[in-house]
Design a binder for these strands. Structure first.
Lengths: 207, 207, 207, 207
DNA sequence: GATGAATGAGAGTTCATTCAT
DNA sequence: CATGAATGAACTCTCATTCAT
């Protein structure tokens, strides 16, 4: 799976292991996945995994944490892209970045959105907080982009919209898997239109 | 959990067991849940569960199957309700029924939508097929209700809409858990508006 | 090891398991012993052991607790034996009972005195308390038997004597293993003489 | 734990390692202790420990061996002390030295007497032989000191007495931990008196 | 029909020990 | 010499599943 390379420096091995773990966790949930599988996917042995990550729980949290950072970073830099044309909608850019991430890093997204949702695991608190950050980030994005156009969007509404946007992106990503002829860009257009239209539906009085 | 009642007729006992199983499966995924827990929740012992349902896998499938029937039945009878006012939108009625089910039978829905989604379990095929039937049903509903208004809605588009509707309903149900002041009816309104607006977005030419 | 007998009632199986566990724990310390060994010695399987005793720690504690009761009971009933001759020294009778127990139930004693002494195990508190009870019991025995002869024996001195008596009995039991020609009775005589003489050493003024 | 000092001459490093190992082994038994702990206590890394001592077993044996030498040496030089007053009892001097060692080098003694007693370890033979040497030494001491006073003390009796003396010293050392107001000297007096009185008890006819 | 008892298979975790730097 | 990295083996504990009552 990975180029076999013994005696790697700390940081590198660790990233390799997280790569493997994300991939494996995207195919089964926390309980289904065995540490042996992760080790095998990383081309190493179980004790090595423990040497670097400490415990199955910490492996999982490390996965969620890292993929979370990547996602947030991707969306943020898209929204604040200094090279983007002035007249381009930053909201659409952000949503597109978000959506592109979901599609391009299918495994990451699955771990982030689907696996972290399972209740009752020992690490519920940590991952739930992580998961909330995705929607919080999206909500903030929506808020900041709509402030001028529609008056002040209530935080509560922004939250709701964010949740809808996220779950919709998830549904679209699934859709894309079964229909490879659709382009991420087309889909991103759908989501944006959808969000806009829902914004009007929510706030008919403010137009 | 259930009123202890020995020596019940076959069918009844079985339904009780499935009730308990649905409740337990809604709180943890397939692997997390133990047959012991299910037996305890049903107020009986493990071998009794096996006697009636055969194996853990078959227990789970039985849960998904039964809840599925209930959901489909609820939506269908709402759409074809003969006592409904003529001028009422059957689509909205259907969506509302669907949404109401999701909210009222939180546990059933969780098992149906979240648990059945996990890949890699031994019964993947069976439950995946079940799960697809939800969206298929919704798609059919949308198709049949929009046929006259928007020309012929492409099956493909109906499918996509169905998926969005379903995942949105899921997001809304989650939202409702955190915000008990929202009424299911309000939420149902949101979904309908959302779906309509998206229909326009998808078919701008046909208006 | 034990007569193979399937499907035993709860209590019986449990005692069998503790029997086996005592035997195994007497040959190796807490960490050396594996639950598999215990299961094998009891003629059953590992999960059965867990079914009845719960955890390795609880197995060990159960052993210590039961053997403790036995020892205390043996000494007590010897001291208060109503059929004993009036002029017989109850102290000697008690020490002899104690010593006989140590020699006859070599395994029990080893678990009680040697294994429970190891610090740093997770159950340190529980077993330490148990272990203290042996000496406390012996101290009480000594106190009650010497009260009239030597004035009031200070509790502190009784404690010290008890400790010496216990460790001496342990040494003697070891000795007996290497020299089978000595009889337990002879040894009991030694201990008594030893204790008496030491009593004089401690309280030279009261003679 | 030890002053970090790289590139030490062979012998010194080795002694430092044994120091650390004795300290660690005194707190947990052979299985509880990990080589990592020993390495950490010595302020070095695991492979270094292996480089010098070879294996966990050999580490343990090295500890026992060295502490044994120290104990024997301490007792011997006390008995044969040329500067001691002529009329002083060399037996008491020896016992006192022995007892002082037990109290002052609590960790050494624990390793020697308690840890080495566990059966079933791979090195049982070696350490058992070591352990026997303590009592043998004490027996010899007793024999040589009593030769003139009580006729010839049978070797067998000397052995028994030695065992009792040793286990009693152990009990006293424990006692001292809980009662810091007792001085080692007082205790040594107790042991000597105890041994003498027991000698009389054993050989009433030979006086 | 219903249940306490029993178990084979497997998962997470640790550790003594060895390479390779 | 000294060490971070790597691993095979073993151990505790759990669970789906089946007997025997």
């Amino acid at each position: 799976m990975t180029t076999k390379q013994r005696r790697l420096p700390r940081g590198v091995r660790e990233q390799q292991l997280i790569d493997a773990a994300v991939s494996v966790f995207s195919r089964g949930d926390y309980r289904t996945v065995s540490v042996d599988e992760i080790a095998a996917a990383a081309g190493t042995s179980k004790p090595t995994v423990y040497h670097h990550l400490g415990s199955k729980e910490r492996i999982f949290v490390a996965c969620v944490r890292r993929e979370m950072e990547r996602l947030v970073e991707a969306v943020r830099s898209a929204v604040h892209d200094p090279h983007a044309p002035r007249d381009e909608d930053p909201l659409r850019r952000g949503i597109q970045a978000f959506f592109t991430f979901v599609v391009d890093h299918r495994e990451s997204w699955t771990v982030l959105y689907r696996r972290a949702a399972v209740q009752g695991e020992p690490f519920a608190g940590e991952t739930a907080r992580m998961r909330d950050r995705v929607t919080a980030e999206v909500a903030e994005l929506i808020t900041s982009c709509t402030q001028s156009d529609y008056g002040t969007l209530e935080p509560r509404d922004a939250q709701l919209l964010a949740r809808v946007a996220v779950s919709t992106a998830d549904a679209f990503a699934d859709w894309l898997l079964d229909h490879p002829d659709e382009t991420p860009d087309t889909m991103a257009g759908h989501v944006t239109a959808l969000t806009w239209s829902h914004l009007s539906a929510r706030r008919p009085a403010s137009s």
